[in-house]
Simulated assay, not measured.
Amino acid sequence: MNDQKVQPSNSPSFQASARCAVAALALTGVAWLARAAWETRLAVAGQPASGPPDQGGGEHRKLTSLEDGYHIVNTLGSATAVLCALVFLSWLWRARDNARALSGERPRYSAIWVYLGWILPLANLWVPRGLVVDIHRASAPGRRLPRSVNWWWGLWLIGLAGGVGLMYTDDTDEIIARAYTDVWMLLAADAAIVGAAVAAVFVVRAVTAVQLERLTGAGRA
């Protein structure tokens, strides 16, 4: 990961990367809406008389058709989230390179943090936002940071604490049990993730716009 010499991405390529990121974020938002809708259906149907899917002691009862459906929705949602992460990070990497080329200054965060910042405990509470803030300031010095950046990060942290974090410790059957007993907690987390995805679309568009403005101007000079 060499930070010595960086060339900005050409405009068409960078625009394509931004469009892919926006599409992936929108798809993730739709996936989480579907997840929330299915959790609502589970809550309305109510827990079967036989109890939760995980009966304890390593025993699991046969799933209902609605529970089977949630497994599919949850799997598709997880796959969508992975795809979105890859596409978003690809755009973020290009945006960081553009920011450095436009400003001529070394970024506050080294390249490894584009990836490590999302997974390192504690650092993942502020580094990703810091990367975007650093990119915007280098790309558009003197301009006010878009409000969408704070909305995106605030909503993401809420979803991380209330819903996404659960996905790493609870299996799907345990989440189904939560839908029967504490569905509002899950729905609140889902709403935060959908909101974060929408706000992230505006973040990508805002950062891309200021960089293309300067890249296009530099190309004409």
Rank of each mutant, 00 (worst) to 15 (best):
Y180T: 07
A140M: 10
W184P: 02
D190T: 10
W153K: 01
R144K: 13
N150P: 03
A140L: 11
V210Q: 00
G163H: 13
Q211H: 03
R205M: 11
I158T: 10
I176L: 11
D171G: 00
A206I: 04
L186H: 07
A199Q: 09
R144V: 13
L155D: 01
A179M: 08
S148T: 06
A189D: 14
W151A: 12
L145A: 02
H136D: 01
A199S: 13
Q211C: 01
G163C: 12
T169G: 05
S139Q: 03
L166K: 14
L187C: 13
A179N: 04
D134Y: 08
I193N: 05
D173I: 03
V164C: 10
V210Y: 00
Y168P: 04
V198T: 07
F202M: 07
W156H: 08
V183Q: 07
S139A: 09
E174C: 03
I193Q: 05
Y168H: 12
E174R: 11
G159C: 10
A138C: 11
T169S: 12
A197L: 09
L155N: 04
V207G: 00
L187T: 14
A179H: 04
A206V: 03
A206Y: 03
A191H: 06
V203Y: 06
D190Y: 07
V198C: 08
G163L: 15
S139Y: 08
I176S: 10
E174L: 08
A140E: 07
N150A: 13
S148A: 13
I175F: 05
V204N: 01
R137L: 05
G162K: 06
T208C: 14
D190V: 08
V201S: 08
